[in-house]
Design a protein around this nucleic acid. Structure first.
Lengths: 228, 228, 228, 228
DNA sequence: CATGAATGAGATTTCATTCAT
DNA sequence: GATGAATGAAATCTCATTCAT
């Protein structure tokens, strides 16, 4: 069973030196995930400082000692979580840019997904927590920014350049235009959530549609051609 | 009980002496300001949790005991500072809307002032700190939001309505349009600062001009009339 | 009542600037001593590592927090105690060298005092604890050595030089000779105590007399002149 | 009970199988030595408390679990090491007393070997560590003392008695005289090392020669006869 | 027997708050 | 009112020991 994992070299053979390495030998990746999950929940709710290591241990269902087997200290654990969250950000977002519809429809689809993502509890909380650590952990915060907001702008800019070449848009400064569209897409949606001025949970579809439709039409009024 | 606090003025009753803020007997308003100033400096640099009451006392040049004469506890002191910061936000910003130039010029002036304000150290830090407390002090955060971002949108919306009536703009949804202009005016400026991805200090004039000029032209392409 | 505290100026006496400074204003030296005393007791019994800060607080009758008001950390507190113990060492020891009897009597008196001191619980324990920290706090340990064993040798060497000049001793290497006498004076007394091979408490008078008489006679056999 | 441990050999009783040290079934004596060696290195460097069981396991190249197969706990392991060190002490030291030269030469040879041994890193550290545990493990410390310093004095005393009988020395109290010679032989050498007041490593030959030559001449001045 | 992941008790240190002066 | 020494609760982190594999 266990040796099935280790190279089935020869059926009757002699595994020379590393036979049956317990489970994964090093650490227990499942427990690692368990810790990360628990830590993410409490960190994102309470923030870095207000979260105690005991809170994390309790939420993760492990002992405090175990935490320190897997992570050097509270900061490293926090960093691991922020790192992990960077990937969740783009998810299926970029796929919207690859599905090849006309510009208006593509932007609308992208904008909606983006707006929905940015009003997600998980992202809202991540933003709050990451931003609050900007001065103490600038590298971590910057990395998050670059993998998140910045990368998103870059990806959209590439799309805009393509459409400009195809004659469907006329754009002098694609980075700026991309960032503009992104800001337009979360207008009246993200900021109130960030400040907790509206109840938690993603924005309702109607609000998103209103914002994104307006974003697309403003954007096309400025950058559109006859053939868009 | 709670509404008893909300100005019973209007009922005719004349509360003779215990009104507004209740200055408890022999308080020294200068010392109060001294405390608030010191506390703002450290809170905005370190955040709520990482700031100790000793830090505040040292920075303010008073004893810890004195802090507790003027403020019930650390949270109340924090709240007082956030309350105080709400006013600094609009400063001379709204004046730009009252000086009566043509729409393009007015928007440009407003946008530049706004962009400069939003990249100010003081505002950037205030945002980080306030946002990080959203879950723990939702009322405070919401009040800050309403006095800040929300009020700004409202005020600009009023201007847009006026210009719509005057035929200089054609705007169906003024709140949304106002918010859009505000987002466009800080595109590529505010977010990197918030994440500390650029060095502190207000954005340079060229970057602001580039962003605001683009904001105005996008906005007018969408909402402008021939006579703007 | 309160103003009674504030300068009784008027009675005629004019305390110009430092009138009755509460207690001692800065800290409470009595409490400081209380902490040092408690810490010395537990440190000298258990050693540095086995003594917990809680132990010290309990023994000193103060809260753990208070310890950290007076001392930066456990190490500093330990260092303060070692520093303090350095002075206790020479006490009335050197006086024996100044009382001007003949050499044999002087050495005997000095030797006895020294032997008694070196078998004292306080000194024995201090030696153990200090020595055990040699590798971790070399400066502290060296300072203790220099103020203790080394200074004692130096002082005795000075005496030997005087007696050499007076023709009562003939000594080529006074430092070495002094150190020899000191070692001879604690022969069979100090080392067993250090290793706890005899019950605690100072050596009994008979044992001391035996060792010191032998020390003096060996020393004089080697370094004495006819006129000693 | 206690004396039952002391060799019942001679009574005739034959304890067939559970004697000496009880090697528990399948123990690997090489691994045991490996553990002891690693533990000695770290214990002697850091002391008992500052050494963690993980340190020992790492240094010895075994798992923590294995340590507890061979030793009941940290204290027992420490005791085993101290026990082991007791034997290293006398090494070739006593051989010097058996080679049959004249008294002066014999004492000089013995004194030099002894001085060199006592300034050895290994012995210096062992002393520090053992002494620091005197109060917590008095039996262990006393056993070390008896096998070390005490046994050395005893052995030298035996030699002095022989030389007294042979007329080469005139010694009334051989134990005391032996201890005196031993103290004289490490004068200015051992104590500074113990307190780390000189850099580690054995004393240089010149310093040892100076001390030991002086020790021999003082000793012979006191206890020598014309025929020594 | 050997392992090392897991643990809980406890170590050092910090800090918001109180209170005698 | 102003002070800052004092506190105890709690925070982060370590470590001797155990136990399933």
């Amino acid at each position: 069973m266990d040796h099935a994992r280790e190279t089935t070299t020869g059926t009757g053979t002699l595994e020379p030196s590393a036979p049956r390495k317990r489970i994964p030998a090093g650490e227990n990746p499942e427990k690692r995930r368990q810790i990360l999950d628990g830590a993410r929940r409490v960190f994102s709710q309470l923030g870095f400082d207000a979260t105690s290591v005991s809170d994390i241990a309790r939420e993760a269902g492990v002992s405090k000692g175990t935490l320190y087997v897997y992570f050097e200290n509270k900061e490293q654990l926090f960093a691991a979580i922020v790192d992990q969250e960077r990937q969740h950000i783009q998810a299926d977002l970029f796929a919207a840019l690859d599905q090849g519809g006309d510009v208006a429809e593509t932007l609308r689809l992208f904008g909606e997904r983006f707006a929905r993502l940015m009003t997600t509890d998980r992202i809202v909380r991540a933003q709050r927590v990451v931003v609050s650590m900007a001065e103490r952990m600038p590298d971590l915060t910057r990395a998050f920014f670059e993998a998140g907001p910045h990368a998103t702008v870059q990806r959209l800019a590439r799309y805009l350049i393509e459409q400009d070449r195809a004659g469907h848009l006329r754009i002098a400064d694609p980075d700026l235009a991309a960032a503009q569209f992104i800001e337009l897409s979360q207008t009246l949606l993200a900021r109130p959530r960030l400040y907790y001025a509206v109840s938690p949970g993603p924005a309702d579809d109607a609000a998103i549609a209103r914002t994104v439709n307006a974003a697309v039409s403003v954007f096309l009024a400025a950058y559109g051609t006859r053939s868009d």
